[in-house]
């Protein structure tokens, strides 16, 4: 059990690191899928099977398909790979990486001040989530639907604009 947790956690981190260092977009997307699947395992270990399933279906499924489609439409090739290589010089990523390292160190430091606690994660079923979702958070569901609608309209608008300009 512990091994599985360690494995999935480290796989998540490894995948994420690979995502941000790849030069070819499709490779990065594949690594992102790996990251998300590993993260879904972590969710399942945390006693959230519903979240895990959603992560696989929606994130690793639907949203990643969007990415793949867009990459297909962009029609990237060898020059893009060369350019990415040029953009990924140590001189360029040195500063931001330092900044992130400082932030990470600070986060770890502040986490270490928390008390160590052991707890077992008992599973929360989809039923609990549903009851909570359509009970006290029903207004939030409405708001999220508004958000999705707004996203839809925006994406449509931007896309249509592009058609007309052609």
């Amino acid at each position: 059990m512990n091994t599985l947790a360690l494995l999935s956690g480290s796989l998540t981190l490894l995948g994420a690191i690979m995502v941000i260092t790849r030069r070819v977009a499709v490779h990065a997307v594949l690594y992102l899928v790996v990251t998300l699947l590993a993260l879904a395992t972590v969710f399942a270990l945390l006693g959230a099977p519903f979240a895990a399933v959603l992560e696989v279906i929606i994130y690793a499924g639907a949203i990643m398909v969007l990415f793949v489609f867009v990459i297909m439409m962009l029609n990237l090739g060898q020059p893009d790979r060369e350019r990415e290589k040029e953009w990924l010089r140590p001189r360029i990523w040195g500063g931001p990486a330092l900044l992130s390292t400082i932030l990470c160190a600070e986060l770890i430091y502040s986490l270490s001040t928390l008390p160590q606690q052991t707890d077992s994660f008992s599973p929360l079923s989809a039923r609990d989530v549903g009851l909570s979702l359509f009970g006290p958070y029903v207004l939030m569901v409405e708001l999220v639907s508004f958000l999705l609608l707004a996203g839809l309209v925006t994406a449509f608008h931007i896309g249509r604009h592009r058609m007309e300009n052609r």
Partner: peptide, 27 residues
Amino acid sequence: MPPTTFNAVLLLSSFLFTIGLTGVLIR
């Protein structure tokens, strides 16, 4: 020992966040 502790997950989460942040900054 339980399979995962809350602190370990917090650690994982902050690592993940930092990696994502680095990605935004360097690409």
